[in-house]
């Protein structure tokens, strides 16, 4: 497990309490899980993602992520319609471990209410929430 000061927590994304991140954008905000979350889960072996076109509200489950001996639910940091999912993860789930904010992204959504984005944490707030 990484020490808190060794975590990669970029400035250009917003963070949710359940350790998802969201990179704000007008039509297609990308969502994934943070370096902290992937480190806690360990080697990720499978990611289950929703169908494109599904509308989900903030806090609703959008998928699951599996390690060898655990399954964790993924929750929507904001409400929105799923416009794309990262098909690459089907073949290479390890991208969530190796590049959580880049190639390891999970879904793209068209955000319903931008106020929900503003309510997410920035890096400093997330770091504080992690106890750092």
């Amino acid at each position: 497990m990484k020490e808190i000061d060794a975590l990669n927590l970029p400035e250009d994304v917003r963070y949710a309490e359940d350790h998802e991140w969201l990179r704000p954008s007008e039509d297609a905000a990308r969502i994934g899980i943070s370096d902290y979350a992937q480190d806690q889960l360990g080697d990720i072996v499978y990611v289950e993602l929703p169908a494109v076109g599904r509308r989900l509200t903030k806090g609703e489950e959008f998928g699951t992520v599996e390690s060898v001996k655990a399954v964790s639910s993924l929750y929507m940091p904001v409400g929105g319609e799923v416009t794309a999912v990262n098909e690459q993860l089907a073949e290479a789930p390890e991208l969530v471990n190796t590049d959580p904010y880049g190639q390891g992204w999970m879904i793209e959504v068209k955000v319903t209410d931008v106020a929900e984005v503003a309510a997410l944490m920035d890096r400093a707030a997330y770091l504080k929430a992690l106890g750092g």
């Binding site: 499978y46 390690s67 060898v68 655990a70 399954v71």
Partner: peptide
């Protein structure tokens, strides 16, 4: 693929 099974899920 034990994550399908009862002791985990």
């Amino acid at each position: 693929l034990a994550t399908r099974e009862q002791h985990i899920r």
